[in-house]
Simulated scan of single mutants.
Amino acid sequence: MHIQTAAVHTLRDFEHGAVVPPVHLASTFELDRASEEGEYAYQRGANPTRAQLETVLAALEGAAHGFAFASGMAATAAALSTLQVGDEVLLPASVYGGTYRFVDLVLPGRGVTGRFVDDLGALTDEDFTPATRAVFVETPANPTLRITDLRRIVELAHRHGALVIVDNTFMTPVLQRPLELGADLVVQSATKYLAGHSDLLAGAVTTDDDELAAALALAQKAQGGVLAPQDSFRLIQSLKTLPLRLERQQANAEEIVAHLREREDVRQVWYPGSHSAEEARIHASQATGRGAVLSFELAPALDRTRFLQALRYPAYAVSLGGVESLICRPATMTHEAMTPEARAHAGISEELLRLSVGIEDARDLLADLDQALEAAAR
Protein backbone atom coordinates (compact mmCIF):
# COMPACT_ATOMS: atom_id res chain seq x y z
CA MET A 1 0.00 0.00 0.00
CA HIS A 2 1.47 3.37 -1.01
CA ILE A 3 1.75 6.03 1.69
CA GLN A 4 -1.07 8.24 0.38
CA THR A 5 -3.42 5.22 0.37
CA ALA A 6 -2.21 4.17 3.83
CA ALA A 7 -2.87 7.69 5.13
CA VAL A 8 -6.51 7.40 4.03
CA HIS A 9 -7.31 3.71 4.41
CA THR A 10 -5.29 2.29 7.33
CA LEU A 11 -8.40 2.60 9.49
CA ARG A 12 -11.54 0.97 8.08
CA ASP A 13 -14.84 -0.69 9.02
CA PHE A 14 -16.25 1.56 11.72
CA GLU A 15 -19.63 1.11 13.40
CA HIS A 16 -22.78 1.97 11.46
CA GLY A 17 -20.85 2.17 8.20
CA ALA A 18 -19.14 5.43 9.19
CA VAL A 19 -16.19 6.37 7.00
CA VAL A 20 -14.33 8.17 9.80
CA PRO A 21 -13.51 6.78 13.25
CA PRO A 22 -15.51 7.78 16.34
CA VAL A 23 -14.02 9.86 19.15
CA HIS A 24 -13.94 8.02 22.48
CA LEU A 25 -13.89 10.70 25.17
CA ALA A 26 -14.12 8.40 28.21
CA SER A 27 -11.46 8.95 30.84
CA THR A 28 -12.21 5.59 32.45
CA PHE A 29 -13.55 2.24 31.21
CA GLU A 30 -15.54 -0.46 33.00
CA LEU A 31 -13.62 -3.67 33.72
CA ASP A 32 -14.86 -7.24 33.93
CA ARG A 33 -16.03 -7.76 37.50
CA ALA A 34 -14.70 -11.29 37.76
CA SER A 35 -11.29 -11.01 36.09
CA GLU A 36 -10.89 -7.26 36.69
CA GLU A 37 -9.50 -7.06 33.16
CA GLY A 38 -10.38 -5.07 30.07
CA GLU A 39 -8.77 -3.80 26.88
CA TYR A 40 -8.94 -0.26 28.28
CA ALA A 41 -8.98 0.92 31.88
CA TYR A 42 -7.92 4.58 32.12
CA GLN A 43 -7.27 7.10 29.36
CA ARG A 44 -3.70 7.86 30.37
CA GLY A 45 -2.76 4.23 29.84
CA ALA A 46 -4.69 3.76 26.61
CA ASN A 47 -7.66 5.14 24.73
CA PRO A 48 -9.39 3.72 21.62
CA THR A 49 -9.06 6.94 19.60
CA ARG A 50 -5.40 7.37 20.50
CA ALA A 51 -4.83 3.69 19.70
CA GLN A 52 -6.31 4.24 16.23
CA LEU A 53 -3.98 7.20 15.67
CA GLU A 54 -1.01 5.16 16.82
CA THR A 55 -1.97 2.46 14.33
CA VAL A 56 -1.87 5.03 11.54
CA LEU A 57 1.44 6.51 12.74
CA ALA A 58 3.03 3.07 12.74
CA ALA A 59 1.61 2.24 9.32
CA LEU A 60 2.93 5.43 7.72
CA GLU A 61 6.39 4.86 9.19
CA GLY A 62 6.36 1.14 8.38
CA ALA A 63 6.87 0.48 12.09
CA ALA A 64 5.70 -2.23 14.44
CA HIS A 65 4.75 0.26 17.17
CA GLY A 66 3.53 3.85 17.26
CA PHE A 67 3.00 6.19 20.23
CA ALA A 68 1.25 9.56 20.37
CA PHE A 69 2.23 12.29 22.82
CA ALA A 70 0.94 15.70 23.78
CA SER A 71 3.76 17.56 21.99
CA GLY A 72 6.91 17.00 20.01
CA MET A 73 9.00 17.67 23.11
CA ALA A 74 6.95 15.14 25.09
CA ALA A 75 7.78 12.61 22.38
CA THR A 76 11.48 13.52 22.43
CA ALA A 77 11.54 13.37 26.23
CA ALA A 78 9.93 9.93 26.16
CA ALA A 79 12.51 8.67 23.67
CA LEU A 80 15.35 10.03 25.79
CA SER A 81 13.76 8.58 28.94
CA THR A 82 14.91 5.17 27.72
CA LEU A 83 18.40 6.22 28.91
CA GLN A 84 19.61 5.36 32.40
CA VAL A 85 21.75 7.04 35.07
CA GLY A 86 25.33 7.25 33.85
CA ASP A 87 24.42 7.10 30.15
CA GLU A 88 25.55 9.60 27.55
CA VAL A 89 23.79 10.77 24.39
CA LEU A 90 25.56 12.39 21.43
CA LEU A 91 23.71 15.16 19.57
CA PRO A 92 24.47 17.67 16.81
CA ALA A 93 25.49 21.12 18.05
CA SER A 94 22.71 22.64 15.92
CA VAL A 95 19.95 20.46 17.40
CA TYR A 96 16.48 22.03 17.80
CA GLY A 97 16.47 24.51 20.68
CA GLY A 98 13.81 22.66 22.67
CA THR A 99 15.83 19.45 22.51
CA TYR A 100 18.96 21.39 23.48
CA ARG A 101 17.13 22.84 26.51
CA PHE A 102 15.92 19.40 27.64
CA VAL A 103 19.34 17.79 27.26
CA ASP A 104 21.20 20.74 28.78
CA LEU A 105 18.91 21.48 31.73
CA VAL A 106 16.81 18.39 32.47
CA LEU A 107 18.82 15.29 31.63
CA PRO A 108 21.75 16.12 33.96
CA GLY A 109 19.35 16.00 36.91
CA ARG A 110 18.50 12.46 35.85
CA GLY A 111 22.14 11.45 35.70
CA VAL A 112 22.30 11.47 31.89
CA THR A 113 24.93 13.45 30.01
CA GLY A 114 24.50 15.10 26.62
CA ARG A 115 27.53 15.75 24.41
CA PHE A 116 27.04 18.15 21.51
CA VAL A 117 29.10 17.38 18.42
CA ASP A 118 30.07 19.80 15.63
CA ASP A 119 29.43 17.35 12.83
CA LEU A 120 27.79 13.96 13.41
CA GLY A 121 28.98 13.00 9.95
CA ALA A 122 32.54 13.12 11.24
CA LEU A 123 31.92 10.74 14.17
CA THR A 124 34.43 7.91 14.54
CA ASP A 125 34.88 5.00 16.94
CA GLU A 126 37.05 7.27 19.11
CA ASP A 127 34.06 9.50 19.84
CA PHE A 128 32.26 6.69 21.67
CA THR A 129 32.89 5.91 25.32
CA PRO A 130 31.55 3.04 27.45
CA ALA A 131 28.85 5.48 28.64
CA THR A 132 27.60 6.37 25.13
CA ARG A 133 24.19 4.76 24.83
CA ALA A 134 22.47 6.83 22.15
CA VAL A 135 23.06 9.11 19.18
CA PHE A 136 20.32 11.65 18.50
CA VAL A 137 20.19 12.71 14.85
CA GLU A 138 18.43 15.48 12.96
CA THR A 139 18.84 15.16 9.22
CA PRO A 140 18.30 17.68 7.77
CA ALA A 141 19.43 19.61 10.84
CA ASN A 142 17.35 22.47 12.21
CA PRO A 143 17.95 25.22 11.04
CA THR A 144 21.24 24.70 9.21
CA LEU A 145 19.83 21.92 6.97
CA ARG A 146 23.07 19.91 7.31
CA ILE A 147 22.83 16.25 6.33
CA THR A 148 23.96 13.20 8.31
CA ASP A 149 24.55 9.78 6.76
CA LEU A 150 22.03 7.65 8.65
CA ARG A 151 23.39 4.32 7.44
CA ARG A 152 26.88 5.23 8.63
CA ILE A 153 25.65 6.48 12.02
CA VAL A 154 23.55 3.36 12.54
CA GLU A 155 26.46 1.05 11.76
CA LEU A 156 28.83 3.04 13.99
CA ALA A 157 26.44 3.42 16.93
CA HIS A 158 25.26 -0.18 16.90
CA ARG A 159 28.86 -1.37 16.88
CA HIS A 160 29.19 0.37 20.25
CA GLY A 161 25.85 -0.82 21.61
CA ALA A 162 24.23 2.62 21.27
CA LEU A 163 20.73 3.44 20.08
CA VAL A 164 20.06 5.72 17.12
CA ILE A 165 17.19 8.17 17.65
CA VAL A 166 16.18 10.20 14.59
CA ASP A 167 14.10 13.36 14.67
CA ASN A 168 12.30 13.05 11.33
CA THR A 169 10.09 16.13 11.69
CA PHE A 170 11.42 17.93 8.61
CA MET A 171 11.14 14.95 6.26
CA THR A 172 8.21 12.93 7.66
CA PRO A 173 7.78 9.30 6.53
CA VAL A 174 6.69 10.63 3.14
CA LEU A 175 10.26 11.64 2.29
CA GLN A 176 12.52 9.68 4.66
CA ARG A 177 12.11 6.40 6.56
CA PRO A 178 14.85 6.09 9.20
CA LEU A 179 13.63 2.79 10.64
CA GLU A 180 14.20 1.15 7.26
CA LEU A 181 17.78 2.48 7.41
CA GLY A 182 18.35 0.84 10.80
CA ALA A 183 17.37 3.55 13.30
CA ASP A 184 15.94 2.34 16.60
CA LEU A 185 13.52 5.18 17.35
CA VAL A 186 11.96 7.89 15.21
CA VAL A 187 10.51 10.98 16.87
CA GLN A 188 8.46 13.71 15.22
CA SER A 189 6.83 16.90 16.27
CA ALA A 190 3.43 16.04 14.84
CA THR A 191 2.53 19.68 15.42
CA LYS A 192 4.39 20.40 12.20
CA TYR A 193 3.77 18.55 8.92
CA LEU A 194 1.72 15.66 10.30
CA ALA A 195 -0.97 18.00 11.66
CA GLY A 196 -0.16 20.63 9.08
CA HIS A 197 -2.54 23.46 10.01
CA SER A 198 -0.83 25.24 12.93
CA ASP A 199 -3.75 24.41 15.22
CA LEU A 200 -2.71 21.25 17.02
CA LEU A 201 0.13 20.27 19.39
CA ALA A 202 1.23 16.63 19.19
CA GLY A 203 4.25 14.33 19.08
CA ALA A 204 4.94 10.85 17.76
CA VAL A 205 7.46 8.08 18.39
CA THR A 206 7.73 4.91 16.32
CA THR A 207 9.90 1.83 16.68
CA ASP A 208 10.27 -1.77 15.57
CA ASP A 209 11.88 -2.83 18.86
CA ASP A 210 9.52 -4.57 21.32
CA GLU A 211 11.60 -3.64 24.40
CA LEU A 212 11.78 0.00 23.42
CA ALA A 213 8.04 -0.08 22.73
CA ALA A 214 7.43 -1.35 26.27
CA ALA A 215 9.59 1.50 27.64
CA LEU A 216 7.61 4.05 25.61
CA ALA A 217 4.30 2.64 26.80
CA LEU A 218 5.60 2.98 30.35
CA ALA A 219 6.63 6.57 29.64
CA GLN A 220 3.09 7.32 28.46
CA LYS A 221 1.50 5.79 31.52
CA ALA A 222 4.01 6.95 34.12
CA GLN A 223 4.73 10.47 32.81
CA GLY A 224 1.27 11.14 31.42
CA GLY A 225 2.20 13.29 28.44
CA VAL A 226 -0.34 11.60 26.17
CA LEU A 227 -2.45 13.04 23.36
CA ALA A 228 -6.11 13.67 24.18
CA PRO A 229 -8.86 11.87 22.20
CA GLN A 230 -10.12 14.97 20.37
CA ASP A 231 -6.62 15.88 19.22
CA SER A 232 -5.95 12.26 18.28
CA PHE A 233 -9.01 12.31 16.03
CA ARG A 234 -8.01 15.61 14.44
CA LEU A 235 -4.52 14.30 13.74
CA ILE A 236 -5.95 11.16 12.12
CA GLN A 237 -7.92 13.40 9.77
CA SER A 238 -4.97 15.70 9.05
CA LEU A 239 -2.69 12.79 8.20
CA LYS A 240 -4.95 11.91 5.27
CA THR A 241 -3.70 14.94 3.34
CA LEU A 242 -0.06 14.86 4.49
CA PRO A 243 1.44 13.51 1.23
CA LEU A 244 -0.57 15.96 -0.86
CA ARG A 245 0.29 18.95 1.31
CA LEU A 246 3.98 18.11 1.42
CA GLU A 247 4.13 17.62 -2.34
CA ARG A 248 2.88 21.19 -2.90
CA GLN A 249 5.02 22.65 -0.13
CA GLN A 250 8.17 21.03 -1.49
CA ALA A 251 7.46 22.19 -5.05
CA ASN A 252 7.03 25.75 -3.78
CA ALA A 253 10.24 25.53 -1.74
CA GLU A 254 12.24 24.36 -4.76
CA GLU A 255 11.06 27.41 -6.72
CA ILE A 256 11.88 29.79 -3.90
CA VAL A 257 15.37 28.34 -3.38
CA ALA A 258 16.18 28.68 -7.07
CA HIS A 259 14.83 32.23 -7.11
CA LEU A 260 16.66 33.44 -4.02
CA ARG A 261 19.93 32.00 -5.25
CA GLU A 262 19.69 34.21 -8.32
CA ARG A 263 19.35 37.39 -6.28
CA GLU A 264 22.49 39.32 -5.35
CA ASP A 265 20.78 40.75 -2.27
CA VAL A 266 20.56 37.29 -0.69
CA ARG A 267 23.98 36.28 0.62
CA GLN A 268 23.45 32.57 1.16
CA VAL A 269 20.66 30.00 0.87
CA TRP A 270 20.72 26.69 2.73
CA TYR A 271 18.59 23.73 1.66
CA PRO A 272 19.20 20.00 2.21
CA GLY A 273 22.33 19.04 0.29
CA SER A 274 23.47 22.60 -0.33
CA HIS A 275 26.52 22.47 1.94
CA SER A 276 28.49 20.07 -0.24
CA ALA A 277 28.22 17.62 -3.10
CA GLU A 278 28.80 14.82 -0.60
CA GLU A 279 25.87 15.91 1.59
CA ALA A 280 23.71 16.15 -1.52
CA ARG A 281 24.69 12.61 -2.48
CA ILE A 282 23.99 11.28 1.01
CA HIS A 283 20.61 12.97 1.22
CA ALA A 284 19.58 11.66 -2.20
CA SER A 285 20.53 8.15 -1.07
CA GLN A 286 18.35 8.19 2.06
CA ALA A 287 15.45 10.52 1.22
CA THR A 288 13.13 11.00 -1.74
CA GLY A 289 12.91 14.78 -1.53
CA ARG A 290 14.38 17.86 0.11
CA GLY A 291 11.34 19.04 2.03
CA ALA A 292 9.94 22.53 2.39
CA VAL A 293 12.21 24.32 4.87
CA LEU A 294 15.07 26.57 3.81
CA SER A 295 17.32 29.05 5.60
CA PHE A 296 18.98 32.14 4.22
CA GLU A 297 20.83 35.33 5.08
CA LEU A 298 20.32 38.72 3.48
CA ALA A 299 23.23 40.64 2.00
CA PRO A 300 24.88 42.89 4.62
CA ALA A 301 23.53 46.07 3.01
CA LEU A 302 19.91 45.03 3.58
CA ASP A 303 17.91 45.80 6.71
CA ARG A 304 16.56 42.55 8.17
CA THR A 305 13.83 44.27 10.20
CA ARG A 306 12.50 46.17 7.18
CA PHE A 307 12.52 42.95 5.18
CA LEU A 308 10.47 41.12 7.80
CA GLN A 309 8.05 44.00 8.25
CA ALA A 310 7.45 44.21 4.50
CA LEU A 311 6.51 40.55 4.05
CA ARG A 312 2.77 40.09 3.46
CA TYR A 313 2.33 36.31 3.44
CA PRO A 314 4.82 34.45 5.66
CA ALA A 315 3.89 35.07 9.29
CA TYR A 316 6.79 35.96 11.59
CA ALA A 317 6.33 33.03 13.94
CA VAL A 318 7.97 29.89 15.26
CA SER A 319 6.99 26.41 14.10
CA LEU A 320 6.86 25.02 10.59
CA GLY A 321 5.06 22.56 8.35
CA GLY A 322 1.70 24.30 8.21
CA VAL A 323 -0.27 25.11 5.09
CA GLU A 324 0.68 28.75 5.60
CA SER A 325 4.26 29.94 5.15
CA LEU A 326 6.12 30.95 8.32
CA ILE A 327 9.42 32.76 8.74
CA CYS A 328 11.48 33.05 11.91
CA ARG A 329 14.86 34.13 13.22
CA PRO A 330 16.26 31.03 14.96
CA ALA A 331 18.79 32.92 17.09
CA THR A 332 16.03 34.71 19.00
CA MET A 333 13.13 32.31 18.51
CA THR A 334 13.54 28.55 18.00
CA HIS A 335 17.08 28.42 19.39
CA GLU A 336 16.94 31.16 22.02
CA ALA A 337 17.62 28.56 24.74
CA MET A 338 21.18 28.22 23.45
CA THR A 339 23.93 30.58 24.55
CA PRO A 340 25.36 32.91 21.88
CA GLU A 341 28.53 30.81 22.00
CA ALA A 342 26.57 27.59 21.45
CA ARG A 343 24.69 29.09 18.52
CA ALA A 344 27.90 30.32 16.93
CA HIS A 345 29.40 26.89 17.50
CA ALA A 346 26.38 25.35 15.73
CA GLY A 347 26.58 27.71 12.76
CA ILE A 348 23.42 29.63 13.66
CA SER A 349 24.19 33.28 12.98
CA GLU A 350 22.25 36.25 14.32
CA GLU A 351 21.14 37.06 10.77
CA LEU A 352 19.94 33.60 9.76
CA LEU A 353 16.28 33.39 8.74
CA ARG A 354 14.35 30.12 8.44
CA LEU A 355 11.44 29.89 6.02
CA SER A 356 8.84 27.13 6.20
CA VAL A 357 7.05 27.15 2.85
CA GLY A 358 3.30 26.61 2.73
CA ILE A 359 0.82 25.64 0.03
CA GLU A 360 0.15 29.16 -1.29
CA ASP A 361 0.62 29.86 -4.99
CA ALA A 362 4.37 30.05 -5.54
CA ARG A 363 3.98 33.14 -7.73
CA ASP A 364 2.51 35.09 -4.84
CA LEU A 365 5.25 33.96 -2.45
CA LEU A 366 8.00 34.88 -4.92
CA ALA A 367 6.50 38.31 -5.58
CA ASP A 368 6.18 38.90 -1.84
CA LEU A 369 9.81 37.98 -1.19
CA ASP A 370 10.92 40.26 -4.04
CA GLN A 371 9.02 43.31 -2.79
CA ALA A 372 10.26 42.70 0.78
CA LEU A 373 13.87 42.48 -0.44
CA GLU A 374 13.42 45.73 -2.33
CA ALA A 375 11.95 47.39 0.77
CA ALA A 376 14.90 46.19 2.84
CA ALA A 377 17.33 47.90 0.47
CA ARG A 378 15.83 51.41 0.78
Rank of each mutant, 00 (worst) to 15 (best):
T139W: 01
A162C: 13
D119F: 09
P130T: 09
D125V: 07
V164Q: 05
T144F: 06
L175Y: 13
A134Y: 02
V166L: 10
Q188M: 08
T132F: 14
L179Y: 04
D184T: 04
I165K: 02
L145K: 11
R146H: 09
R146M: 08
R177H: 07
T148V: 12
D184E: 02
G161E: 14
V187L: 12
P143C: 15
D125L: 03
H158I: 03
A157I: 10
V154W: 15
H160F: 12
R177I: 00
G182Q: 11
V166C: 14
T169M: 08
F170V: 15
H160P: 14
V187I: 11
G121A: 06
Q176F: 11
F128H: 07
T113A: 15
I147D: 00
V164M: 10
A162L: 12
E155I: 05
R115W: 05
T148G: 04
V154N: 08
P140H: 09
L145G: 01
T169W: 04
M171H: 07
R177A: 06
H160N: 14
R115Y: 12
R177C: 01
V135H: 03
D118V: 10
R152A: 10
H158Y: 07
T144L: 09
Q176W: 10
R159N: 08
L156F: 10
F136A: 00
R115P: 03
L163Q: 10
T148S: 13
R115T: 11
P143D: 11
A134P: 00
F128M: 08
L175S: 13
L120K: 05
D127T: 03
R159T: 12
T129M: 11
L150V: 15
A157W: 05
V174S: 06
P178M: 04
D149H: 11
D118A: 12
T113C: 01
P178F: 03
T148W: 03
R177E: 06
V187H: 05
L145V: 13
R146I: 02
M171K: 13
T169C: 09
D184N: 07
G182H: 14
A162H: 14
Q188W: 02
V164I: 07
E180N: 02
D167A: 10
E138D: 09
A122N: 08
D119P: 05
A183I: 05
P140R: 11
D184W: 00
R146C: 05
V174T: 11
P130H: 12
L185N: 00
V135Q: 03
G121N: 09
I147Y: 01
T144M: 09
E180P: 00
L179N: 04
V154A: 08
V135L: 04
L179Q: 04
G121M: 02
A131K: 07
D127I: 02
V187R: 15
R146T: 08
L185F: 05
Q188E: 13
R133V: 00
R159L: 13
V187Q: 06
F116N: 08
A183C: 11
G121Y: 01
L156H: 08
H158D: 04
L181T: 04
F128T: 04
T144S: 08
G161L: 06
L181M: 15
M171I: 02
R177P: 00
